[in-house]
Amino acid sequence: MDWLDNIIKTFLDFDAMWQVFPQLLGVGLVNTLVISIWATVIGIVLGMVVAIMGISPSRWLRIPARIYTDVFRGLPAILTILLIGQGFARFSQELFGPSPYPLGILALSLIASAYIGEIFRAGIQSVDRGQLEACRALGMSYGKAMRLVVVPQGIRRVLPALVNQFIAIVKDSSLVYFLGLLVSERELFRVGQDAAVLTGNLSPLVMAGLFYLVITVPLTHLVNYFDHRFRTGRRKATPPKSGLDEVEEVNPTPTLTYGSNT
């Protein structure tokens, strides 16, 4: 069983895993979450702007939104991250100092906003047209109708898709290491990779992988749960009732019944 030993040593060396565990938890996980959450928050804000522009009646808003989405969705993530991370390094240095960390977050946000913009757009457009018409018929402006009625409904529908997008961002955050992070800024993948190189053993990377799965798998199931709930609705079954209940409701005056009014 030499080969089995080999495999276990290469991938599941517990000593190597255990050694890297504190670093993965204290540095890697924290940074991965910080990067991902920032990128998601900024991505949601930008994505909403892109979505609103994308469904605007004005083509001068629609076309730029379309181009933006096409570009950032169409490019490989790694290319965008490198272009943004290195291209704006001078600019970023004046604002945030020498760390490429903020630019990594920015690049991820831009990519995320293109996807999130599409998610929001699809959600908003799936809201029945009658909702907008009802608002407009009451004299509401387009902007108010969108803000008060249509967009909130659209957002609620795409919550599962947004969680999916967060999962994608968590995974993509591993690409930020390309920009060269300081030791304390390393995210899960980089921590695992460094340890793997140091020990000449892949187990630290497997450990990093487990960390990713601990974040992503529960979220995936959360999405499925929400999805199921949205589809089946929260309606409880009610016993059958008489249509007369309601007929009475609009005819409050008791009707005369033959024989009972003597």
Partner: peptide, 30 residues
């Protein structure tokens, strides 16, 4: 449109507002 009311075949009520909020929304915001 403020001066003309329209009632639709499919009601088009706002599903995440109560009956009262449905009626009050435009009073407040328009």
């Amino acid at each position: 449109r403020k001066r003309i009311g329209l009632v639709f075949q499919h009601f088009n009520l706002f599903p995440d507002h109560t009956a009262l909020e449905n009626v009050a929304l435009a009073l407040r915001n328009v």
